[in-house]
Design a protein around this nucleic acid. Structure first.
Lengths: 162, 162
DNA sequence: TATTGTTATACTCTATAACTATA
DNA sequence: TATAGTTATAGAGTATAACAATA
């Protein structure tokens, strides 16, 4: 059986196993991410960072500060401002001033934002299920565990924050 | 032990296992990719696509056509032209006209390109090893196999090309 | 002084589509 | 007609850095 060309096919026999593993990981991720981005665009006219920001907000009804969002999404502060601006203009999120610190504000989903996001999230989860669903339960949990170890090793350790 | 916030932390208990798996995969990939991009930039003033293109060329001394490169790198044709232009300007690759089809040309590494790339590849592989090296042999092969299954399911099937 | 958030800027990466020159 | 490659364009995504307001 012929293989379809991709990043991994650049490897040569003497390449180290870890390199092959990395290229395979990257290829998988790019394939799935590309598919999700494309569907978010065509079906909901939105983007992955916008979707992710709304997903973060959904689980915290009271809202989150910009700095919290930037930590969770692992991008710098200025980017969060831009995404929030867009979503606010469309009435999906709102900035709420807090009395305790007048520099910061809480960002939270509006009613419209919650409704809109839940609709998107439902389909999004179906897409994911259809992409991962072909794996056996055993394979999925092996993958989950292995990635957990990898993440723990790779990420910069911060001192305790949830 | 507290967890560091990331994309995965947006999940709530009722979320499906596949969604958690996907977010964990995405987080791992982004962390590693970000690290590689950053090191390629600061240590070699280059980028991941440029590095990948050179990696593709190294294993085919005779050179590759633009269309082959675009298949392997899974991006559209115009992007390959741009990256090739940059690398050619720096004398790292060259376009070679072929007699059999005057529309196409072969791209291949120059001597300087080979030398430069080999130096980068050596360090690159050390970075990768240090990032994956903490995983047990068992975990690494489980990860490799699981990702292989996932890739086979996800990617669009093309009819036979190597 | 340090932190929160904003603004401005610049660059990489990418897709799309129109174009040319061959085949 | 179809293919190989180019060009132009637009937009996503990101980092950096200077800045204002507040702590």
């Amino acid at each position: 059986m012929q293989r379809t060309p991709d990043l991994e096919s650049r490897t040569v026999p003497e390449d180290h196993q870890d390199l092959r593993l990395w290229l395979r990981l990257l290829t998988c991720c790019n394939l799935i991410e590309g598919e999700i981005r494309s569907r978010l665009r065509t079906e909901f006219e939105t983007t992955l960072p916008r979707f992710d920001l709304m997903a973060q907000l959904l689980r915290v009804p009271g809202g989150m500060k910009m700095s919290e969002l930037s930590q969770h999404m692992m991008v710098t502060n200025g980017n969060i401002t831009g995404i929030t601006d867009q979503l606010e203009k469309e009435g999906l999120v709102e900035r709420v001033k807090v009395a305790s610190d007048r520099r910061s504000s809480l960002i939270r989903l509006t009613t419209k934002g919650k409704r809109t996001f839940k609709k998107m999230a439902k389909l999004h989860e179906e897409w994911i299920r259809s992409m991962f669903g072909g794996l056996s339960e055993q394979t999925r949990s092996a993958l989950f565990e292995a990635l957990g170890e990898l993440k723990a090793m790779t990420r910069p350790k911060l001192s305790g924050r949830s």
